[in-house]
Computed example of a mutant assay.
Amino acid sequence: MRNIPTDIYIENEAVKNHGGEIAELGKKAMIVTGRHSSAVNGSLDDVRAVLESQGIGYVIYNDIEENPSVETVYTAATAAVKYGVDMFVAVGGGSPMDASKAISMLAKNGIVCENAEFSENEGVVKAEKCELPDSIAKVEELLYTPAKLPFYPIVCVPTTCGTGSEATPYSILTSHIKHTKKSIAHKIFPSLALVDYGYLKTSSYGGMKSTCVDALAHMIESRLNTNANAFSRAYAEEGMRLWASCKGCLETEERFAQMTDDEFSTFMQASVLAGMAIAYTGTSIPHGLSYTLTYENGVPHGNAIGVFLSGFLKKYGDSTEVEYVVKQLLGFDDIDAFRDYIRTLFGKLDMSEELWKKDRDGILANPAKLKNYPFELTADMLDDYVRYYNA
């Protein structure tokens, strides 16, 4: 059983309220973020203000792309070493938070690009030159080989209500060598998570749907999981109850535009609970199937998971457990109603037969995902996932 060592605060102005705890973690920070959303929703300004008020130096690395790659975290780690960073503040959705964990570990262990050159403008660091090794496979081997390696402290400031990365030890990176997304082998919990629903208010409708369904999948996959225990079930079940109370907010853009502070707060709480649940269990089959769809077809992460959820429930080996999840926790009349809800959000699954077979056969050869599924899984059963969703 895994304890969650992260100090998690869910409150208004969480960043401003906990500057002292941030200051205890290091003397110079790298803010890890993307280029746009953190600047728009105010989270980046809040973090900068608190670091400055605490006398903590910082640089900003804002080249984290959606579904961050091994190459990106390697370059960022090189910058962190060059600028003498000893802590990280991840600001944004799952991409910056996941990336910061890998960056922290690489930087702490001196896995850097030799002869790299960077420029700095108003605190923002850019790579001017960073020659990757002859084969990035050497870096991937370190990331994906289990070992106990040290890492620098990490503060997570989530601005979406989906990944729950602020409460998990997982770092999902894109491997261009393997043409997929995959969690690194190292378990790296953040030291501190500062969760403020106010940052959700600038979310787009599409972004909100995708991230919310990602959180929903975490809870379903954790609850129906080989590794489920009393703690993970409690987190997943309470999270699903909260999520269900606001699920109507996602059905139309008009309803989304009318969301209240309480509804944003509820989704954010559900996302954190979902992250806490999968910290114990890991994810299962829908997540495993989603990575190929995202890498090959560019489908957003939550959408790619969502299209496999109803089939996962339909073919799951314990109908009593499924009925409890679908009816009692999520408030749907049956699995068909759940499927129809997801199709309202994302439409039907559009995936070539060739790509689907690659995806299907890949999950059947993936022991890390299969071990989290408590029943036998066959190719015909997986084919039924797609047939049922698109029926």
Rank of each mutant, 00 (worst) to 15 (best):
M1E: 03
D7C: 08
I10H: 14
K16T: 09
G20Y: 13
I31F: 03
R35S: 02
S43Q: 09
Q54I: 01
G57I: 02
I60R: 02
I64M: 02
E65Y: 10
E66T: 03
N67W: 09
P68Q: 12
P68L: 14
S69F: 14
T72F: 07
V73M: 11
G84D: 11
V85S: 07
F88L: 08
F88Y: 15
V89C: 12
G92E: 00
A99K: 00
S100Q: 06
I103W: 07
M105L: 11
G110I: 14
I111F: 14
A116W: 05
E122S: 04
K126E: 14
K129R: 15
I136Q: 08
V139F: 11
L143Q: 06
T145C: 08
T145W: 09
A147D: 14
K148Y: 11
P150C: 14
F151L: 01
F151H: 15
P153S: 10
V155E: 01
C156A: 15
P158G: 12
T160F: 06
T163R: 02
Y170F: 15
I172W: 05
K182M: 12
K187A: 08
F189H: 11
F189Y: 14
P190Q: 10
L192Q: 02
L192E: 02
L194S: 03
L200P: 05
Y205K: 15
G207K: 06
M208C: 09
V213F: 11
H218D: 02
N225Q: 03
E237V: 06
S245K: 08
S245L: 04
G248N: 12
T260L: 05
A277P: 03
I278S: 00
I278Y: 03
G282A: 03
G288F: 04
S290P: 01
Y291T: 08
G302R: 06
I305T: 12
G311I: 13
T320R: 10
T320Q: 12
V322K: 04
V325M: 11
D334P: 00
E354W: 09
E354C: 07
L355M: 12
K358I: 10
D361P: 00
D361F: 15
N366S: 04
P374M: 14
L382I: 13
V386T: 15
Y388K: 13
Y389G: 01
